[in-house]
Design a protein around this nucleic acid. Sequence first.
DNA 1: CGACCATTTGATATGGATCAAGCGATGTGG
DNA 2: CCACATCGCTTGATCCATATCAAATGGTCG
Lengths: 228, 228
Amino acid sequence: MFIQTVAKQKIPYPMMLRPIGVRTVGHSTKGAVELFGATVPFRRNAEIYGDKEDAEYLYKVVSGSVRTYKVLTDGRRQIGAFYLTGDVFGFEGGDKHTFSAEAVANCLILVIKRRAIVTQASRDLNIARMLWTITAAELQRTQDHVMLLIKTAQERVAGFLLDMAARSPTCDEVELPMPRQDIADYLGLTIETVSRTLTQFENSAMIAIPSARRIAFRNREALSRLRF
Amino acid sequence: MFIQTVAKQKIPYPMMLRPIGVRTVGHSTKGAVELFGATVPFRRNAEIYGDKEDAEYLYKVVSGSVRTYKVLTDGRRQIGAFYLTGDVFGFEGGDKHTFSAEAVANCLILVIKRRAIVTQASRDLNIARMLWTITAAELQRTQDHVMLLIKTAQERVAGFLLDMAARSPTCDEVELPMPRQDIADYLGLTIETVSRTLTQFENSAMIAIPSARRIAFRNREALSRLRF
DNA sequence: CGACCATTTGATATGGATCAAGCGATGTGG
DNA sequence: CCACATCGCTTGATCCATATCAAATGGTCG
């Protein structure tokens, strides 16, 4: 009934699921998050952490991008969020992960011992506030996700594109780091519906699609009207 | 295209939108949340706070129940959460509300100045941790909501019933404080689909419906299998 | 009793899923 | 360098779960 959409399973295990290597960074003074961090590269589709594992680390995207997801028993996959350069992830409040995380493309991830942060937070109110702020931002994002999931396919795709645009450096063109299947699993649609909706937008001159991973905005106004 | 589901608009304004009265509670020593609170009664469907208002207060349900919701420009309403006796709400991280809140039924709400808590938190790490814990619980709940919204109607309704059961004191029967329209707007379904799904469950002897607001479990096992 | 809701039930429509095939880019081996 | 497998994406045809539209039922209160 539902497609098994876990790309991972099509990929030879030892090649994809391991980080490429480890580069220790040590004690940085640049910012609070950087305490005792190590920058670790992950290959495309490599697992960063798994559902139900202990949340031993916090993560910050140095470059590349990351998806978090859950797979239901019947194989349906829901992507919880995409994290781009600069985003922090790996928090879900508790001390167990409730999502799994994978590299969307090859990426560099700053990995910080959670304990280091949490014990620091019990002394330093600024750290405590930072933890709270990150959690609150995550909550906000998740609430927006809920609002997205009750909308029509057009509204979801338009919302997604505008969202990615808002988070990316360039202005009138987005580079999508993830394949269509990831977008579909984030939006609660099928890959076919995502594709069709994009060509629909292209046909009505709202966007151009120079390549599958590049979306250029032609009429952002019209897209925004779809967003609500 | 979409039904206007804002019950509020059908109700004479001055009668429904005001609290019934105010009873000051003063400085309690029972728990951290109770600092400088006042218990305020709200009538059924009365607004507790509005979308985009300053989040000046925090709220705790003393008795009754509360819904938070957003209304899209075209009238679609999404209910974000139901809060039952003992639950804290009115947090969404930032200092503006992103949802509105209404009394589902007549209820008593403990209202606490947010500033009192936040300034307290900047001195007291336990308070700070409590704020974080509440936000994290809210995040967890919202993530579960996302997972619910990608499922089939049967799975959503089954999940909702089991969820309400887990939160209610009684064991093999739930008293639903909210009308079908609220359930529909929480689950991202129509009222007709909710109703049909319930009778379907009744016909397959999973539940009994002695009255519209009472659901008795006959085969919880089978319901759980639908939940995933 | 009769008005008013909330809920259920019935008939039909439809948006998006499913099933299936085609297409274009990338890479690989002969 | 080209034939050809592979993969991600698009396009087409059909189906189905849920929405929509409409009406009946039931419960509550003046």
